[in-house]
């Protein structure tokens, strides 16, 4: 997997580079601002870009703007937003239209190295990786709470994990339930929310996000 990193804090930039190196991935560029990121992506054609949202010069949303541009210009490059805070508006803009190859993780998640690398690989493969925090905020922000209220607590857990981008196997591992039980829950959720059943991970996420009102 070829990765471009955009992160203005040196210690994190170098740490990430080292971490990905250790896991056998190639960091082909590590930059510190949005413009450099766009240039690096155009030059390197990586599989995925890890993007900090707040970077110089204005320290507001240059990372997001660079990411949107990359999504537009290079459809096959995955983008993983990597931030210290969750901003639902940012997530919505990033996910707008297409959740394929998009991720939004809090920087905290890097503590669980294996999960982080797995999420990055998922995004590189065109999948989705949303932080549980992002998902729960989207849940809270969702106006269609009626449908959500009909879900059992377990079903809501499963829905959250689906929105994060997990596969059935991933969900069963996370909740310590059997694969058959997960399938049953997923079918029930799709039924209650009126979502079209689908097989691929990304289409499931898309369905969930559309339901939550960010997929448009």
């Amino acid at each position: 997997m070829r990765v471009v990193i955009a992160e203005d804090a040196v210690v994190l930039r170098e740490g990430l580079t080292r971490l990905l190196d250790d896991h056998g991935h190639q960091v082909c560029a590590a930059v510190a601002d949005g413009d450099a990121l766009v240039t690096a992506v155009a030059e390197q054609k990586p599989d995925v870009a890890v993007v900090d949202i707040r970077m110089p010069p204005t320290h507001t949303d240059e990372g997001l703007r660079a990411a949107l541009q990359i999504r537009q210009d290079h459809r096959d490059v995955g983008v993983l937003m990597f931030s210290q805070y969750v901003e639902t508006r940012y997530a919505s803009r990033l996910l707008a239209g297409n959740a394929a190859g998009v991720g939004y993780l809090l920087k905290d998640r890097v503590a669980d190295v294996a999960d982080f690398v797995a999420a990055l690989e998922r995004v590189a493969d065109g999948g989705t990786a949303l932080d549980p925090e992002v998902v729960s905020q989207l849940f809270r922000a969702s106006r269609r709470t009626e449908g959500l209220n009909t879900l059992t607590r377990r079903e809501r857990d499963v829905l959250g994990l689906m929105a994060e981008g997990r596969s059935n196997a991933g969900i069963s591992a996370a909740l310590f339930i059997s694969g058959g039980a997960v399938e049953k829950h997923v079918a029930s959720i799709f039924g209650k929310l009126g979502l079209p059943p689908s097989e691929g991970d990304n289409r499931r996420v898309l369905a969930v996000l559309r339901y939550l009102g960010t997929g448009e």
Binding site: A9, V11, L12, G15, L16, R18, L19, D22, Q84, K107, D108, V110, A111, D112, V113, A114, F116
Partner: peptide
């Protein structure tokens, strides 16, 4: 925040 994130990352890698 950056320092703590880096620390978590280092410890995560060490743990792994």
């Amino acid at each position: 925040q950056v320092r703590l994130a880096a620390m978590a990352m280092n410890l995560g890698m060490a743990k792994e």
